[in-house]
Design a protein around this nucleic acid. Sequence first.
DNA 1: GATGAATGAGTATTCATTCAT
DNA 2: AATGAATGAATACTCATTCAT
Lengths: 204, 204, 204, 204
Amino acid sequence: MTAPEITHEPLRRTRRAQTRDRLLDAGQSLFAERGIHGVTSHDIAKRAGVAAGTFYLHFKDKAELFREIADVAVAELRRRLQQATAAHTDIALGVRAHATALVGFAEEHRDLIRILFSHDSEAAQIESDVLDQLAHNIEVARHRRIESGLMPAELDPAVLAQALVGMWARVVAWWAEDPARAERDHVIETLVRIQLSGTHPGRD
Amino acid sequence: MTAPEITHEPLRRTRRAQTRDRLLDAGQSLFAERGIHGVTSHDIAKRAGVAAGTFYLHFKDKAELFREIADVAVAELRRRLQQATAAHTDIALGVRAHATALVGFAEEHRDLIRILFSHDSEAAQIESDVLDQLAHNIEVARHRRIESGLMPAELDPAVLAQALVGMWARVVAWWAEDPARAERDHVIETLVRIQLSGTHPGRD
Amino acid sequence: MTAPEITHEPLRRTRRAQTRDRLLDAGQSLFAERGIHGVTSHDIAKRAGVAAGTFYLHFKDKAELFREIADVAVAELRRRLQQATAAHTDIALGVRAHATALVGFAEEHRDLIRILFSHDSEAAQIESDVLDQLAHNIEVARHRRIESGLMPAELDPAVLAQALVGMWARVVAWWAEDPARAERDHVIETLVRIQLSGTHPGRD
Amino acid sequence: MTAPEITHEPLRRTRRAQTRDRLLDAGQSLFAERGIHGVTSHDIAKRAGVAAGTFYLHFKDKAELFREIADVAVAELRRRLQQATAAHTDIALGVRAHATALVGFAEEHRDLIRILFSHDSEAAQIESDVLDQLAHNIEVARHRRIESGLMPAELDPAVLAQALVGMWARVVAWWAEDPARAERDHVIETLVRIQLSGTHPGRD
DNA sequence: GATGAATGAGTATTCATTCAT
DNA sequence: AATGAATGAATACTCATTCAT
């Protein structure tokens, strides 16, 4: 919650920071390839090009490395989604911007998507955080819609949030696995359409 | 000196089958609690009340035990969903029956739902099977709807299937985790509404 | 050392004795195929067509079964060799009869040869017994020869015995492995020739 | 802040190599004492004074450690025998040099002799290699002798090779077990005498 | 006697983590 | 800071042996 200290650090990254980043990169790609349990600390050190012991100079344990990768990913995703949502007052436009941001993130960070939605037990808390964030965005939008009288009151908001979040997570993970599976615009269009229509008042 | 009695006891379970079932039950509850990776064959044997080695008299390894639990669960889920879908020609009724069956299964088999949708790497193939089945049910319903002119042609069917499947899996897993989170009927209602509305032609 | 009791047993083998023999046969063939360490008590019971537990009704453990197989084999081999040696006063004829008996035994009991000379640690004592017996036969023959003045006195009798015994064991095991490797008569001839010539007085 | 010294120490053994050698030594003595099957990887690690897991940093498994011990031993034995044989054109001298080299090797490497001729199933291939080498030496000598007309043509050369090889292996193993069993020179003399006489034409 | 399921000690192997250099 | 060898607890799996039926 406190702003990070602004230090007068040299322009060139320190050697230490470089090693740390190499470990983070190595962890990210390996976790995406083989899942968290399928990767050892030796594997990560090896891909990072450092000795096995070096890992522990930078991270308390494998879980901490994972946490850090995930936290960065979540922060970035969160930033993008909020930015997209905040930029529009019109609901339809906001929903579309949200979906576009989500798909854009998946496109650029396939590794992170795979890791975040791996459901590996270590990822459980992280995924929960991510989806809470996504659900929060829904809440915001939904309240606006209810005020506009567009929202069917009878739908349980918690269930609705889970439904949309589940939809997003799966579609995005499925698509990030192999973007050739569908065209980018079709993915966005489908997410938008379901979200908008699904929250319209029913006719029955 | 007397010939040993040849007894056929089809009614009483054999000792072997009882042990096997105890291992299956123990595995099911432990997998649901801690994920597949968080459980050892010793853990399972211990909870089943047998020696560690006994595990291997019944299953080649942990994966085989898991496979068996999952296969039974999948078969039962599949049976219910097909039965529900087959019972209705009306789309709306079919969708509602499908959602009801899904929720009913989750209610009775909370452990299995947690295991099937754990995304644990061992569960990947199984989950894929389950979701393929769910997706198939969507396809069937969708084709009927297209014939009825109710389906917007521009939505990518593969993406749509993933979206609905993701929605179901998440809602059902979330709810099975703690059924107090929402009323059963609200869960069903939300699933139905989104599915029906989401595939209506949009108005924009 | 005591003669076995002569019991008025029924002509038909008892069921117990049949089971015991089946276990012995199974053990013999399995030991020959895979070595003593490569065979489990379950394997033996299975090949004998009895339940695993039955094994222990007949033998204290695997070592006892092995001992029994080996003892029978050794007794038979010993009987044959003694018979052959005893039948001849002429040295050359005696040596030839001995070699012929050895080869004949190998021909009929390839399994036993493989087991006796497997050098598996369990077989060590047995093999030692066998070779002691063979060595003993040499001693007897040698003494006769020394009396006849045919034996070079300078050769260490213990070393000589080991040499001949080693020669026999290897040739016979090698040949029993695959009798197509050499003609039976050539095997006998070679053994005889080396033994007779080798123990003649040297010329240097 | 100073760059780490880059030291090349070709003279002082690295820690790693020392540990590896300690494991090899421990394996060698334990294999000789108890046979390959009677030794566990933990036993070896313990005698080497390292932790159990350390074993696997140096060798894939017990078989690999054994292979390495055996390969070194075989290479050394082969070198000596070839050297001995190559040094003489005279048959009698060559045979004597060969026997002397064999006995000398057994004297210095009692452990290796026990291991090589243990007949343990893992040692089978190695022993086969060794004996092939020994047999080869026989072949070379034999051909010279046939040219000289000293060799009885009727003896099967393969059988003869097995006979001599068996003789050597047994005598040497028996003597290495306890060198007090015979005087070194008597062992050599016996081996030489049998080999030379055994391959002379018989007189009968 | 026979059965065969169960036992549990034994052994192999992995890998997160430490620490001397 | 970095190294990389070593540690040792954790875990998987086997199999000789027992015992209730």
